[in-house]
Amino acid sequence: MLNVSGLKEGFVLDHIRAGKSMSIYHYLGLDKLDCQVAIIKNARSSKMGRKDIIKIECGIDVLDLDVLGYIDHNITINIIKDEKIVEKKTLKLPKKITNVIHCKNPRCITSIEQELPHVFVLTDEEKEIYRCMYCEEQYK
């Protein structure tokens, strides 16, 4: 197993589907954050075969991780403080996601007003259906 030094404060995102870590890196805007990030790709996992892991050294109030629930709700979030895991978070589908997915309905107001945020609302938790907040078109 590859060793990456432990964190003082931050997050360890575990059980990321193998190969998905870079897209999560971008979704979370980690490229814009001035902090230490370790991306571990294709780590061996007894549960998943292979998995990706992301370690982020940052203040635990800096990142909004709710969006991960939409991307992959099997990810485990370990919150680290003083080099210890203080909380293990499992993810739920977020009720609302902003500027992660975009409305593709050509009749939607967002198609002509570029500065509008693309907001999607969870309308059916069971079927995991998100609808555009403006035109109510389902995201597919």
Binding site: I109, Y134, C135
Partner: peptide, 10 residues
Amino acid sequence: RHPKEGAATV
């Protein structure tokens, strides 16, 4: 009244 869907919501 607007030709685009969701305009009134905006």
